[in-house]
Amino acid sequence: MLDISKFLIEAQGVNIQADGRMIINHVDMTVSEGEIVTLIGPNGAGKTTLIKAVLGLRSLSAGSVTIRPNIAIGYMPQRLSVDPNLPLTVRRFIGLAGKMAKGKRQSVLDEVGVLPIVDSSIHDISGGEMQRVLLARALLRDPDLLVLDEPAQAVDVNGQAELYQLISTIRAERGCGVLMVSHDLHLVMSATDKVLCLNNHLCCVGHPDAVSKDPNYVELFGPQVASSLALYHHHHDHEHAVDGHVVPSSEGHSHG
């Protein structure tokens, strides 16, 4: 199962310290071609820090991050607000990603659903539209790996489901790897191959089904979140007991 030749990213024993505090404590992580890996964890768990380390935006205190050479990475930062002093249309913002064929640009904008707003000022679009614009800019780099830091923030609940569906479709069509940060496991579950539950160290790793039942996950997010997740899960999977009894699963699940 561990085919090293397919790794886009391999992080080993990553430690990151800041102001004497250990933000990331001995984290191992891999992202392979065509794989969607989701980082979840509470605020301050180090999710964004880990992503920035992978992108080379932050230095490591120990460990290593290996990125396959010559791959294109599309990055969608957590928050991007353009200074109101800067007049900028959506089209211009997206064009800053680099030069590209016009036809290709059109098709990407269409795919992400931002064609109707390309001539709007970037200061006039909604939070959800901004996230799609950022996604479009990342996609226009023709990425082998997409790194998305909370792509669904500032997006309403319906929009969130749509956005994750879109990310899933993008992966299916392009075969790129995806590393993303999310708060809500129940929304990304169907679109995720592997979940890393982070709270400065890795609490648990595995398939979303397995992680949602992991005692470390339940402890981290509290029984309410965990059980609402289980309920949601049971609507879609009738193999499990209807009384919500937690069936331990060891498949694709390890504890670090």
């Binding site: 992108l55 991007l80 800067l86 900028l88 913002f93 780099r141």
Partner: peptide, 17 residues
């Protein structure tokens, strides 16, 4: 001009690109 504009909008994004 273009890279400076990119940095102005978001340094990390520019660096990642």
């Amino acid at each position: 001009w273009r890279p400076l504009l990119s940095i102005t909008i978001h340094e990390d994004l520019a660096r990642a690109e």
